[in-house]
Design a protein around this nucleic acid. Structure first.
Lengths: 209, 209
DNA sequence: GTCTATATCTGGATAGAC
DNA sequence: GTCTATCCAGATATAGAC
């Protein structure tokens, strides 16, 4: 009408995003998306050929923004530890802004693996290389880089994919849970610093037999 | 025949477990389960009323074994850190024996939340309480217990729910990935020890031999 | 208990008028 | 571009013979 309503296509995208987020790909219903967008089911197929295509479009949009932004935080820096801390802040900020992404990625990794390949994501490997360099230069405590990456990702991502589970297990209210998420970056950085900081050289302590 | 083949019902259960693991609840097909069990589709409905019922049965079985076992590792112990290490070993061992469970739990937490409530799982809260006690007694470095729990779970569970993702991101072969999983418990325990060990007040040696 | 055949239902996709 | 009506495949579930 006269309102500055977003055009149909973007309404559909927003509606689909919400529906996919709420229910996951398999349980998401084209009808429900149409309802959310307040249009007819046929319009979905007019603008996007299929459910698959619709999902792929959204995923590409999101991933195309997300990964470059995260990767931008990976600019070379002299010190690896603060560099990692920046990465964690960036990563968590983007997750909080796009809390659906981890679940999407899991979906994709099971149902639409080919989509992943279209999005070049080499920053994990870059990270691993940077980590290994830092290990050798003695900047960080010697450590398996891949284990470290898995730990970081796991700690960051867990609250987003396991929201219901965690809330249930720990008997948390929504507000408590959101609070937990918002202080999560600090928590993870604490781990990182503790884990990576090399033991003082001349120490009297036995270097963990 | 004359072989000591398991009876139909258990064959179905095993087949269904495999199918649910491979494809998740939504993409699991009753026909595929029947094929795996080498019986007819109708038999599934004879022994278990519906797909939902079949899933629920499996879940209850598994959860009924898993949680008590894990909980058993939570016997009171004098020192909280070794106690946590034992917990991690137990937890990871059970995950490796039941690699589908984390994905199941996620499924359930989205689609079948009511199933979770049937399985009494109060060990996370017990753990939190034990943790807080240890904090106050100065046995461990002061710390947010719930954040800690989320971190542990995330680190343990990540490789099981994100197998494809991790393999893709880090460009790992199956063998490398399995190796990563099998040394994972050690990795996590290293984090735990570093994080929980109180800073040496003045002493020359941290109380860990 | 086990099968074959079939009913039923759901949901993605298309045809065609406007 | 938008709608109504419809198709059709795929999947769960049931009927009923053996």
């Amino acid at each position: 009408m006269s309102e500055i309503e977003p055009d149909t296509k973007s309404r559909i995208l927003a509606a689909a995003e919400a529906e996919f987020l709420a229910n996951g790909y398999d349980r998401a219903r084209m009808q429900a998306i149409a309802d959310r967008a307040q249009i007819n089911k046929a319009m979905l197929h007019y603008h996007f050929r299929s459910k698959d295509e619709l999902f792929a479009q959204i995923f590409r949009n999101k991933a195309g923004v997300f990964f470059p932004k995260v990767e931008a935080s990976l600019r070379e820096q002299p010190d690896f530890i603060p560099f990692t801390c920046v990465f964690i802040d960036t990563y968590m900020a983007h997750l909080m802004a796009n809390p659906f992404l981890p679940s999407y990625l899991l979906q994709v990794s099971v149902n639409h693996l080919e989509l992943l390949e279209q999005v070049a994501i080499d920053f994990p490997r870059k990270f691993v290389r940077a980590f290994e360099a830092a290990c050798q230069s003695g900047q960080v405590r010697p450590h398996d880089a891949r284990q470290f990456v898995v730990s970081i990702i796991g700690m960051c991502v867990m609250p987003f994919i396991g929201r219901n589970l965690i809330k249930g297990f720990l008997a948390l209210e929504d507000s408590q849970f959101d609070e937990l998420i918002s202080s999560r970056a600090e928590e993870i950085k604490r781990y990182v610093v503790l884990l990576l900081t090399p033991e003082p050289k001349e120490s009297k302590e036995p270097s963990r037999a």
